[in-house]
Design a binder for these strands. Structure first.
Lengths: 126, 126, 126, 126
DNA sequence: GTGGTCTAGACCACA
DNA sequence: GTGGTCTAGACCACG
């Protein structure tokens, strides 16, 4: 069962690099299992046409995800979501680790612990 | 008692805009109280010489912080940390809010709650 | 149908910052609808060449209007008039509000109401 | 009966030239009659000390108001508010004329009449 | 091609 | 002395 790609699949912030946002969103879809292991990705040209973007942008996206071992390309056969579940887990751990590292850096820059920062944010919302 | 500025005051990541990093770091110093309300900032030229950067880069930094109401410039007199403590609090709240919003978005993109994400990160470190 | 830019598009008062005057005049053109939502602005370099000004001056102008949410920049694609008509309305309201606030302050400084001030101005013209 | 000067006599916007703001505010005080014709102004030094400002700033202010014929300086005797009530009236007319001219320019830049602009501002406040 | 950052250096008004 | 504007020109990442 194939995944259906639509032109409004991605949320875009014009201020940030497109390929970077596609990487993040595709990566999340793979980690979440929305894009299951072994699923065939649209070709660069197809994808570019579908989401109305420059093919080089899609290519850069795919290459980045290949470097992460989340996508694999078989020459002449197309690009597939990896079936290496360990790679997927590792990617998830990396995302989580980076996110928390980032939060901790901000907390430290304000002389707060992560817990104090989270508390402060909750107060605000009440 | 004035703040002492050193040439290695700022941690620089060459991959990101200089002024952006100065803004972040000065903002954190003001919010943390390291740069107290009312303190005079080094003049644009002084600061530029100290951290070995073009004066216009420093100016861009100061102007950005002025937009945030963390700095105030008096014509021909120099630039000062605001004495408007409410502005400083507001800035702190904004940093905290943005940081948590960012974390929440990442958590959601992985089908996790923020708590689950934090837990996962802790496991990893053990 | 695109807008035609001419080298004498802008009225310049040499005593005031160029970028500030460009901002005001472009803002008015957008609010008036002369520059319709979604229209592509000339590239920074094109505009700079047309009005014979340094590209950085044009960029400062565009960035200021972006802060106002009247322009939107798409990476590597160019700068466009926002399609967010609410932002345009908000800008119009701000201009109007500021103008009347300014008038009211002058009136008050003379111990007049706004109506009295306007009346006085009309008398003068008769 | 002399006018009492205080250090907080003037409202200051750090973003605009000091002398310009003093000129505006003194002019308004004279036109309004708060500073009556014939009243003696503090000396440049006194005034500078009172409002805690550079003497050259006060000097520039007085000179500007002399050019407007609202102040007159008698060598060695000090500076006085003019007793020429026609000059005061003329100044009032100028302020009023300029204010309305400014408003009209803004209205025109938005394709509005002055009346429409005022209406719009009132709507907003309801 | 696009915008964006940074530099070096000139010039200005304000205090 | 201060900040601020403008120029000319280099270099970069993105699409």
């Amino acid at each position: 069962m194939d995944f259906i790609w639509k032109s409004d699949q991605f949320r875009i912030d014009p201020a940030r690099p497109l390929y970077e946002q596609f990487v993040e969103q595709l990566r999340a879809m793979i980690v979440r299992g929305v894009l299951a292991p072994g699923v065939r990705m649209p070709s660069v040209r197809e994808m570019a046409a579908t989401i109305r973007v420059n093919p080089t942008t899609v290519m850069k996206t795919y290459q980045e995800l290949e470097r992460d071992r989340l996508l694999v390309t078989f020459r002449g056969q197309g690009t597939y979501v990896t079936t290496d579940t360990e790679a997927i887990w590792e990617s998830k751990r990396t995302i989580v680790r980076e996110a928390v590292k980032h939060l901790r850096e901000i907390a430290e820059s304000l002389d707060l612990t992560v817990d104090q920062l989270l508390e402060l944010a909750l107060e605000k919302e009440e």
